[in-house]
Amino acid sequence: MSSELPIIRIKDLYFSYHDNSVLEDVNLEIDKGELASIVGPNGGGKTTLLKLILGLLKPQQGTIEVFGTTPEKARRKIGYMPQQAQLDPQFPISVLDVVLTGQIDRCGKGFTGGFPKAAGSIAQAALAEVGLGDFIQKSFSQLSGGQRQRVLIARALCSEPELLLLDEPTSNIDPRSEENLYETLARLNRKMTILLVSHDIGFVSQFVKSVICVNHQVIIHPTSQINGTIIKEIYGGDFNLIRHDHRCDHTGHSHHDPFSGNREQL
């Protein structure tokens, strides 16, 4: 464990939408250089956790520090890729213009309000990074779902982030592109800390360094510990049944196996 301050530090966090408790007693630290995946069932709070880290949502209790400050102040160091479902796929915009919005905060203050000169080459490099270097003049609406996904990753990279947050980067991607994507992420991880949301734990565990299970509570596993039991605990059955009955520190923990003797193929 490095002596540096963790990039994300969440303490005793509770969050609920109105009366529906989404996250309870969350403690989490992400160190610099991490490549971690948040996994868990739908409705378990994965996206909520990302939005809390971005400061788009406010916790009812507890604190979140990002880069040692509030999420709002840290935002500009974060590259974010949202779920594609919230965007209009027919919006009239070119691939280059989508990626350039990663630099929108650096738009000129002068009369023309244009991007700084360097923005174009940063955008181009970001597109090349995700393998879409030739798509720069294409229209966003002409692309496949998987290509759009990669454009949105390029947009996040165009912000030149120190921390990359990706919400379901593999949701529209076929298995081969998915493998390419993880190779890309592993390469980017040398330069930046990466936190991604995925529902595909089997695949993700080969690439990431740790897995953060989010199902109302948050538990971290080093990937070496991922086995059938843990997967089952994350996804199987009603969450009340599988709620973890113990807490552990952020370095990881071991699991009881409440399903032993009755193991099903996932």
């Binding site: 971005l54 788009l56 935002r75 500009r76 974060i78 974010y80 949202p82 919230q86 965007l87 209009d88 919006f91 915009i93 213009d97 989508v98 350039l100 919005t101 990663g102 929108i104 905060d105 738009c107 309000g113 244009g114 991007f115 947009r155 912000s159």
Partner: peptide
């Protein structure tokens, strides 16, 4: 550019400050 960014993805524009 700002109008484009806000119309395309308001949340992302907000995150860029």
């Amino acid at each position: 550019h700002i109008v484009t960014a806000v119309c395309f993805d308001e949340e992302f524009a907000r995150l860029r400050g």
